[in-house]
């Protein structure tokens, strides 16, 4: 490759990953409880999030869905007054007990797609390369390949290949959300957490992101918090229903949506509360 090759001429090639993930580490919790300033938000949660599936966490507003999601990558630490007990494991790593040094690696292995797209204050290229740079990938050629690969993966390459050095905030909201997804994928996580990732998008962009999740589950395990039951019914393989900080029911999408066992699940699905 010439030293000053135009970025837009780069091809999507396969290349050796800078990280050694087998992609099969299990993410699961054991008796996880969490309180904020003494208020119990999560109560005794023990659940496993299956690999290479889309797991949807559903439940009424304020039930603790997003808190549970933020506990998986310990972003909940940014909230004041948090106390956690129990365990969250990613493979052999206990996320709850991890020190700050271990956390940076754990967070690389668990990506996040935020509720509202939030590009970092840099170019489109810079956003994708950021995660790799902070984890020590320095070679320009390798970074170029990563940027091309993951922009292709989220179907954004053809739309942005001629303006990779433009600020990422110039993209449409839907494109920004796909950029955020590509940014998470670029550090090759095993799990992807999506916190109502389509709620700020228009229906068309929302459909694109949903389809992406369905396609990406072959390589990644996706955990999605959603408020939209229809969305969960469309894409979920596995469902966790939470109510007042407790897991009421878990199972395959078919089991939970079509043959719910618990009265609360039935009421939630029939719209008695939301």
């Amino acid at each position: 490759m010439p030293l000053f090759q135009k970025l837009s001429d780069l091809k999507n090639e396969d290349f050796a990953s800078p990280w050694a993930n087998d992609g099969k580490s299990r993410l699961y919790t054991e008796n996880l409880s969490l309180s904020i300033h003494g208020n119990r938000i999560l109560k005794n949660i023990s659940v496993e999030l299956p690999c290479n599936k889309i797991t949807c966490i559903v439940g009424p507003s304020g039930c603790g869905k997003s808190t549970l999601l933020k506990t998986f990558n310990r972003l909940i630490d940014m909230t004041e007054g948090v106390k956690i007990s129990g365990n969250v494991f990613l493979g052999n790593e206990n996320i709850v007990k991890a020190g700050f040094d271990d956390l940076t690696e754990i967070r690389r292995r668990i990506g996040l797609v935020p509720q509202r797209p939030c590009p970092l204050p840099m170019s489109i290229y810079g956003n994708i390369a950021y995660g790799c740079k902070i984890h020590g990938v320095r070679k320009r050629r390798e970074l170029n390949r990563i940027v091309v690969k993951y922009l292709n993966e989220v179907g954004l390459w053809n739309e942005v290949k001629n303006r990779l050095r433009s600020p990422a905030v110039g993209l449409s909201i839907g494109q920004q959300q796909r950029l955020c997804l590509a940014r998470s994928l670029a550090v090759e996580p095993e799990y992807i957490l999506a916190d109502e990732a389509t709620s700020a998008l228009d229906p068309q962009s929302s459909k694109i992101v949903e389809d992406l999740f369905v396609r990406l589950k072959e390589k990644y395990s996706i955990v999605m918090v959603t408020h939209t039951l229809h969305q969960a019914m469309r894409i979920a393989d596995y469902v966790i229903f939470i109510y007042m900080g407790e897991i009421i029911e878990t199972g395959t999408a078919d089991e939970v949506f079509h043959h719910p066992k618990h009265e609360l699940t039935k009421n939630y699905l029939s719209g008695v509360f939301s």
Binding site: N73, L75, M78, F100, L103, T104, E105, I106, R107, R108, I110, G111, L112, P114, Q115, R116, C118, L120, P121, Y130, G131, I134, H135, C180, R183, S184, V187, L193
Partner: peptide, 12 residues
Amino acid sequence: EMREAAYALGST
């Protein structure tokens, strides 16, 4: 959200 996005990628 910007801080969360950067931390979620493993930033120190």
